[in-house]
Simulated assay, not measured.
Amino acid sequence: MTDDAPVGRVRSLVTAPESGAPPERRESVTVHADGVAGDRYRAGDGTFQLDGCAVTLVAAEALDAVRAETGIDVSDGRHRRNVVVEGFGAGMDDLLDATVAVGGALLRPTRRRPPCAHVEELAGAAGLAAALRNRGGLCCDVLEAGDVAVGDRVAIREADPRTTGAEIAARLRERRE
Rank of each mutant, 00 (worst) to 15 (best):
V14F: 10
G8S: 11
T47K: 07
P161H: 10
R133M: 15
I156P: 01
G44W: 10
G35A: 04
R162C: 01
G136R: 03
A62D: 05
R26C: 09
N134I: 04
G35E: 09
T110W: 03
A131E: 00
L63I: 05
A117Y: 08
A170R: 15
E24D: 03
R175S: 11
S12M: 06
V85N: 07
P23E: 10
R67K: 14
D4T: 14
A126C: 00
G136H: 10
E177H: 15
T15D: 01
A43S: 11
L143S: 10
A123N: 00
D94S: 15
S28T: 13
P161F: 14
V83Y: 06
A59V: 13
A62H: 08
A5K: 06
T56R: 02
C116T: 08
V55P: 01
A54G: 05
D160V: 00
S19C: 06
R26A: 05
G71V: 07
L95H: 10
G137C: 13
H79A: 01
G127Q: 02
D94T: 08
A126M: 03
R173K: 10
E158K: 13
D64M: 05
D152F: 07
H118P: 00
A105W: 07
F88T: 04
R175W: 15
T2H: 08
A131Y: 00
D141G: 11
A98W: 04
P22Q: 15
R78I: 00
T47I: 14
R67A: 15
D76Y: 10
C139F: 00
R11M: 10
R11D: 05
T30H: 09
L107E: 02
T2V: 04
A126K: 06
V36A: 03
D97Q: 09
I156R: 14
A123S: 11
D45Q: 10
D160T: 01
V31T: 13
S75L: 12
V55T: 11
T70S: 08
P17F: 07
D141P: 00
A62R: 02
T164I: 09
E61S: 09
D97K: 09
G87T: 07
G124A: 11
P109Q: 14
R113H: 12
I72C: 08
T56N: 12
